[in-house]
Nucleic acid binder design. Structure first.
Length: 888
RNA sequence: GGGCGCAUAGCUCAGCUGGUUCAGAGCACCUGCCUUACAAGCAGGGGGUCACAGGUUCGAAUCCUGUUGUGCCCACCA
């Protein structure tokens, strides 16, 4: 026996091969004469750590990129990280706070110094972790969305969009995070699905000019009463008709505000009266615009009240504390009519979880109408194919209802908006301060650099990552033509070579955040799509279907899993139930299966390495080889088809079943010599070839163990690595050979079953009578039948007596098995009668089908032929069964 | 509230343009095996009227409609 471990030990193998591939530079790509196959990684957050979603996502990308290499493409997988402005800044702020440093005490430059320090220290860990998974990225091409070149690109694009008139600065009601003191995009606001428990307060306002007439409104935000500028009711509401033209008095501050009428107000909600606070509610803002109402903004950026509340004691008070105090006051003064608990949806910041404050603010917006049409079109016509296709509907719906994109964020970590404000309040937009000054001086020649103030805000993260597939190849540095506002491919052969990329593998959650915007940028700047296919993965959930998250603590550490089950085992497990778009309910059982598969492969190696070899060949195994040749050809073709259709789970399953069942359980058992005897050299060599081909096919899925087996099964020349092997050319499939092999399998199974039913051990030999029209297959496999099925004698033709013989069908052939036992005739009869009944019904339905003219005429000829064959086989089986029954 | 999707064995899911040798796989379960590559294994077995009700068709898990359940996305109900 060889010195190989009894079980496969992934930890002794994986790092070795990864280092080897790295040293050989196998992952690197440079443009050459081959066609390109490009994937740009969805850049993880620079401060992120590997989680299960990354494992799934990057396994898929690695399978695709390795397959592409095998197929002769110049495969390039570009890795990188995203600066993730708000998420990273939040982390840095928290870290500083723990050190007793407040962000507000730092200058912008000081803060960024800390941030970059943090990035250097913790950034990119995730990329190192990906290496353990086996990710074959071209690490030399690693990009970061705040690299100097990338920064330059983002700024250039901002200036370009501004010059094209796509960007504008506008006063808008935005979602404001009072903790991070930044605007949030709609996508960054999350609503608790179940809603939250809130108090709905009914407050009465006195009608002006009356002694004791009041109008009662319902609100969840009584603290904003100070900023009310109207009361609104539905014009159809008969209860309030008499208030037309009247005014109400705001409690406490005694300001008079008009009663207005608008359809927006629902008569049936609350009291049917709505207080209107244009500065602090998006709807109210709309109402305010429509009815020309005054706008009173009563909050500071941090959510505390400002002097506009008009009550000295409340100035500087936090909004929620203010609410509590003020409600008490209202109650004390008799303004509070009632309080009830309702369930409503409260928006919270995705990052800080604080309740979002609607706020009027000057922000930069990108006019999406100007840039989104093409991005919808290319998905509609499948220039960009979404997988699974159902996301097309979702995509369309979003693109048709797209809103302008607020691209500014009140943060420091990110790309600073290149807008410069002049003393007169106007602004210029330019790639640099110098350039900005030049522009400003055209307005006023006396201006100096000191007069210009650059915008304090940075750009939304997605306003940089939407350039990813273009900018990882430097699309906006040398090749960007500022006069046309397009990338000139002639100036960037590299981009021209790698772009468009082949496939983007990402989660559906960011279909709009990121995918749609990359398509927009691609169309805007090159007129070409950024990727041909978008493979949308599912979400990795736990057994209970909950999303895996840190706070729930229900996610295993991927690195622990890799250590315990091997990267190959984990990859296998993740892929085993992950068709595109399907969530996967993670269970350790899945990676266990992967690990077990590794062990199975490992033991094939042990078997073959452990055999003694004798010269020569074994002619009797020729039909076995014919069968195996055809099976492996079938698998090679089928696998190719499945992978090209991105049906990776099915592809993996195909290989698993082929290797485990056909190759191990049948083929190896057939060619394995009796214990202690040597195997013929010719047989071993053929077997090694089969194993090698299977390993090549499996390599994209399980790269480490396949490389290890490749090198262990025989001595290799330096550089003869499985990594470099081409996808095998499928041989021809000999249908008869396949059929023969399958027949042999059924025959052996039948004999085994007979023994099992009789509770006999394998060691009991069986005598078999075979009644077959064509006996060639039995003769060809005679040796195997005698040895592997432990058949003592094989007799063609009917037995003289069926006494104590078991009757079975193998295919259409009738066989009698003599195990030297008494057989329960009644049981046998019942079984045969059941079978007869089944085949009678079966034949009837096929005959019915075939006698239907419409079927014969309309159905595909192949289908009809198949039905005829089914009928013939069925009839033969029925005949055999009836004969068996008669013989009993 | 609007849109989209899903419903197949105890569990997780396959089943591609409708054709009864398609009702499947893995896990779980049961039986028998320490057979000298592998107990992380080998040989077998039980288990589903393909959510429910209609319809189209010669034929439906597969197409259509409705019902129920369930999930996701979008949205301003105070």
């Amino acid at each position: 026996m060889s010195e190989l471990n009894k079980t496969y030990v992934s930890t002794q193998v994986e790092n070795k091969w990864y280092q080897h591939w790295l040293e050989r530079g196998y992952f690197k790509s440079q443009p050459d004469g081959r066609p390109s196959y490009t994937i740009t990684i969805p850049p993880p957050n620079v401060t992120g750590v590997l989680h299960m979603g990354h494992m799934l996502n990057n396994t898929i990308q690695d399978i695709l990129i390795r397959t592409a290499r095998q197929k002769g493409f110049n495969a390039c997988w570009v890795p990188g990280t995203d600066h993730a402005s708000i998420a990273t800044e939040a982390k840095v702020v928290r870290m500083l706070r723990e050190q007793g440093i407040k962000k507000s005490d730092l200058s912008r430059e000081e803060f960024l110094e800390h941030a970059f320090e943090w990035k250097e220290k913790y950034g990119g860990i995730i990329l190192e972790q990906l290496k353990q998974l086996g990710a074959s990225c071209d690490w030399d091409r690693t990009s970061f969305t705040m690299d100097p070149e990338y920064y330059e690109a983002v700024i250039k694009v901002f200036v370009d969009l501004y010059n094209k008139g796509y960007l504008y600065r506008g006063l808008r009601m935005i979602n404001w995070d009072v903790e991070a003191k930044t605007a949030l995009s709609n996508e960054e606001v999350i609503y608790n699905e179940a809603g939250e428990q809130s108090q709905l307060y009914s407050v009465r306002y006195k009608i002006e000019g009356t002694e004791d007439e009041y109008i009662t409104i319902a609100t969840t935000r009584p603290e904003t009463i100070f900023a009310d500028t109207a009361i609104a009711v539905n014009p159809e509401d008969e209860r309030y008709q008499h208030l037309k033209g009247k005014f109400a008095i705001v409690p406490f501050v005694n300001r008079r505000i008009p009663v207005i009428f608008d359809e927006y107000v629902e008569k049936d909600f609350g009291t049917g009266c709505l207080k209107v606070t244009p500065a602090h509610d998006p709807n109210d803002y709309e109402l305010g615009q429509k009815h020309d109402l005054e706008v009173i903004d009563m909050f500071n950026d941090d959510g505390t009240a400002n002097e506009k509340v008009g009550v000295e004691a409340y100035i500087g008070m936090d909004r929620f504390i203010l609410r509590k105090k003020f409600v008490k006051e209202l109650e004390a003064e008799g303004f509070l009519v009632k309080t009830e608990t309702i369930t409503n949806k409260v928006g919270r910041s995705e990052r800080t979880n604080t309740v979002v404050e609607p706020k009027l603010s000057l922000q930069w917006f990108l006019d999406m109408q100007k840039i989104s049409a093409k991005a919808l079109e290319v998905v509609e016509n499948d220039e960009v194919q979404l997988l699974p296709a159902k996301f097309k509907n979702t995509y369309r719906h979003w693109m048709e209802n797209v809103r302008d994109w607020c691209v500014s964020r009140q943060l420091w970590w990110g790309h600073r908006i290149p807008a410069y404000y002049l003393p007169d309040g106007s602004h210029v937009v330019a790639v640099s301060a110098d350039e900005a000054l030049k522009q400003a001086q055209q307005k006023d020649a006396s201006l100096t650099a000191a007069d210009l103030k650059q915008d304090e805000d940075v750009l939304d993260t997605w306003a940089s990552s939407w350039l990813w597939p273009l900018q990882v190849f430097g699309g906006f540095n040398e090749a960007f033509d500022t006069t046309t506002g397009k990338i000139d491919f002639a100036k960037s052969p590299e981009l021209r070579y790698y772009y468009p990329t082949q496939v983007l593998v990402t989660a559906p959650e960011i279909l709009f955040f990121w995918v749609a915007r990359m398509i927009m940028a691609g169309m805007e700047y090159t007129g070409e799509v950024p990727f041909k296919t978008v493979y949308l993965t599912g979400i990795v959930r736990d057994k209970q279907g909950r999303k895996m998250s840190k706070s729930l603590g229900n996610s295993p550490d991927p690195l622990d899993l890799i250590r315990d089950y091997g990267a190959d085992g984990v990859r296998f497990g993740m892929m085993s139930s992950a068709p595109a778009g399907n969530d996967i309910l993670y269970d350790d059982k899945m990676v266990e299966q992967g690990r077990n598969f590794c062990n199975k492969l490992w033991n094939v190696l042990r078997l073959l390495k452990g055999l003694e070899v004798k010269p020569g060949d074994d002619a009797s195994l020729a039909p076995v080889f014919d069968w195996m040749d055809s099976r492996i050809a079938q698998v090679t073709t089928e696998l190719d088809r499945l992978v090209s259709e991105y049906r990776l789970s099915e592809a993996q399953k195909l290989l698993y079943n082929f290797i485990w069942d056909d190759f191990c359980s049948w083929y190896l058992e057939w060619i394995k010599p009796p214990f202690g005897e040597p195997v013929s050299e010719g047989v071993l060599n053929r077997t090694i070839e089969y194993l090698e081909q299977a390993m090549v096919l499996l390599h994209p899925f399980m790269p480490f163990i396949t490389e290890e087996i490749w090198h262990s099964i025989q001595d290799r020349k330096d550089g003869d690595d499985i990594f470099l092997q081409a996808y095998p050319t499928a041989g021809t499939v000999n249908a008869a050979a396949v059929k023969n092999g399958e027949h042999l399998k059924s025959f052996i199974s039948t004999i085994r079953n007979a023994r099992a039913k009789a509770q006999l051990s394998y060691k009991e030999p069986a005598k078999v009578y075979i009644c077959a029209v064509d006996t060639k297959v039995y003769q060809a496999f005679e040796n195997l039948i005698l040895v592997k099925a432990n058949v003592s004698e094989m007799i063609f033709g009917e037995p003289e007596s069926t006494q104590n013989l078991m009757t079975e069908l193998v295919g259409v052939d009738k066989i009698f098995i003599d195990l030297g036992l008494a057989i329960d005739i009644e049981a046998q009869r019942t079984k045969i009668e059941e079978d007869i009944k089944y085949y009678q019904g079966f034949i009837l339905s096929v005959e019915k089908k075939l006698s239907n003219e419409r079927f014969v005429q309309n159905a595909n000829p192949d289908v009809v032929e198949k039905e005829r064959q089914k009928l013939a086989d069925g009839q033969q089986k029925l005949k055999n069964l009836e004969e068996s029954l008669a013989a009993l």
